[in-house]
Design a protein around this nucleic acid. Structure first.
Lengths: 345, 345
DNA sequence: GTGAAAGCGCTAACAG
DNA sequence: CTGTTAGCGCTTTCAC
């Protein structure tokens, strides 16, 4: 089997009777190279099917041109959409992206960070695992001068650039909406407070109760793994014990659907008997019967923004800025599941 | 600003009064190195916080340890799940993964392949764009000795390893099911035949009609972009023109939901008046009312399998095998939307 | 404007 | 078992 070696700048140099450094300069549009040679070089390069070897260039310049991403689950719509944004920006700037998943387990998150550091990423984008008490591994990256930016979720205990949603405000608005629709006794299905997003959303809900001067004893916040089946079981149990709330506020859509299923099976109607709202606008939420009131989060834009911030930071060497928090606006999508009087379709 | 350089094998060598090649060997568990020095080296390495520089190793061995992935949309559940499988296998074997999206556009697919070739990937995993008439860019990769394996979808015109679903058989079985439920006049909402999966599913449906000896004039195959809204419009139009079918077979779930919405709005009930089935088992399909009959595809396993095949191929240098098609089994999930007599819950 | 030369960090002959 | 040496392909001073 014939193994033809890839053409290098030396091949081009030989063919053109030039020095390889000139080839390098010409290809990189270095100013100190004449237009004529530049043209000649480029012509020859494409003639010989030259493909620059980034590995070598990266080694020389000590830049991997790679950023790492750490997320809980790639298969969640929110994250895959955010990643799409990250990928698009990275590609535009000539960066590669390595994606790692933690399945929301701190142990895996540590492995992820290690993998990324070994791959010599120049920076890391992370949405930390839910049960994150220790951030030792994050500090490790920081100690190696690898910037580590947070998106969507953030870990406490270290300063960095964060691109997050206005979770607290949004939860407040949604809770206001429920109260306006007549709800007072609300059950919240939340993830654990150790994840910033859930902690903030809980705060927003409490804000709303206080603002409306409703006794917090009417508020039932249940922390759990936000999974359809677990929500289903919890709500079923709740109803069977006679604790039917006025409204269920699930902090993600999947959970809201579990709740609706449980309610339907216990002959309670949504929204007639119980209002239900979700969070994060899964693509199917609109098509459900009843269509689900939820929060639309600009995941793609968030991915783009945080990636752009990281890359600009890498290229600027702006060491001054130690921390910056950008908050993106989410949008309430009011649909049938939270309207006492059913919307006309 | 203090810039501390990363420790290299030379630093370890100096500290231990050994040669850097010995360090290299010790770290790579080369057999010809004594246990004592190996231990010493490893101890020193972790003491100095040594992180191997893959870039350099890769350059030397001329292996990037990277595979590329080309898919239509990262944010589709099927693909993000498959990618999760690919990532997991790649990580286990020490490979990095670069993901690119084509949005089902051939032009973008060409760019993707170019990007991957420039990044010196060792192999490519592709699920080709829908409208793929030309495969020039794929041939380009092959010419550069970069293996390019297909998963889920495949392009005609070149031989390679393929890991796909048994689309034809599955579509046949599903169509049998619809016919058994009394359907005869079926409308199929399909993607364009230029994507292998849709072409094969169409064939399976026709197989079923022939097997049951039903005149094909009762079969209405509509090719379209498989998007919820387009399906909704098409079905609505169909019904308004009085062409109500016995069943709608949507070749993905999102489309099925569009169809159901249109039917509901025209006062037709699913499954009483019209049966509806989908394809690919989105996570919410089970929770819909009515719950959706669909096909469960082992996306994660498919990702794992194709990634494993590629990596083993890369490591074996087995040049003998030019083509192999693995077909994975999908599974019919019969739920309420296709049962004349409503299932008890 | 171009050439010469060194070296990024690592691996892999080849010696011993 | 360990050391010597060369070099992967590229960039980047420093010359001229």
């Amino acid at each position: 089997m014939e193994i033809k070696k890839a053409t290098t700048i030396h091949d081009i140099a030989k063919a053109l009777n030039l020095n390889s450094s000139t080839i390098s300069r010409a290809l990189n549009n270095h100013p100190r190279v004449s237009q004529t040679t530049r043209d000649k070089v480029k012509a020859k390069a494409s003639e010989l099917n030259y493909q620059p070897n980034n590995l070598a260039a990266n080694l020389r310049t000590n830049k991997s041109n790679t950023i790492g991403v750490v997320i809980p689950f790639l298969s969640r719509y929110f994250f895959s959409t955010a990643i799409a944004g990250i990928e698009d920006v990275a590609q535009a700037y000539g960066y590669n992206v390595i994606i790692t998943q933690t399945k929301d387990i701190t142990e895996k998150e540590k492995e992820s960070i290690n993998t990324l550091l070994k791959s010599r990423v120049e920076g890391i984008l992370i949405s930390p695992a839910m049960y994150n008490d220790d951030i030792e591994h994050i500090e490790k990256a920081i100690n190696q001068q690898i910037p580590i930016f947070c998106f969507d979720r953030y870990a406490e205990g270290f300063q960095t650039t964060r691109v997050i949603m206005d979770d607290r405000k949004t939860a407040l608005l949604m809770c206001n909406h429920l109260i306006q629709q007549g709800a007072k006794k609300i059950t919240v299905l939340s993830g654990y407070k150790t994840a910033s997003i859930y902690s903030n959303r809980q705060k927003g809900i409490i804000d709303s109760y206080i603002k409306h001067d409703i006794d917090l004893k009417h508020l039932n916040i249940k922390e759990m793994e936000l999974d359809t089946h677990k929500a289903y079981c919890y709500v079923k149990d709740l109803v069977e014990k006679g604790n039917v709330p006025d409204a269920i506020y699930a902090l993600n859509d999947m959970t809201a659907f579990g709740a609706i299923k449980a309610l339907n099976e216990t002959k309670l109607s949504v929204p007639k008997d119980v209002l239900v709202v979700g969070f994060s606008n899964e693509p199917l939420s609109e098509l459900f019967t009843p269509s689900l009131t939820t929060v639309n989060q600009p995941a793609y834009e968030m991915g783009k923004l945080v990636a752009k911030k990281l890359i600009l930071h890498l290229e600027d060497n702006e060491e001054l800025l130690t921390s910056e928090t950008s908050i993106l606006k989410s949008e309430l999508i009011i649909r049938e599941s939270s309207l006492r009087r059913r919307k006309k379709v």
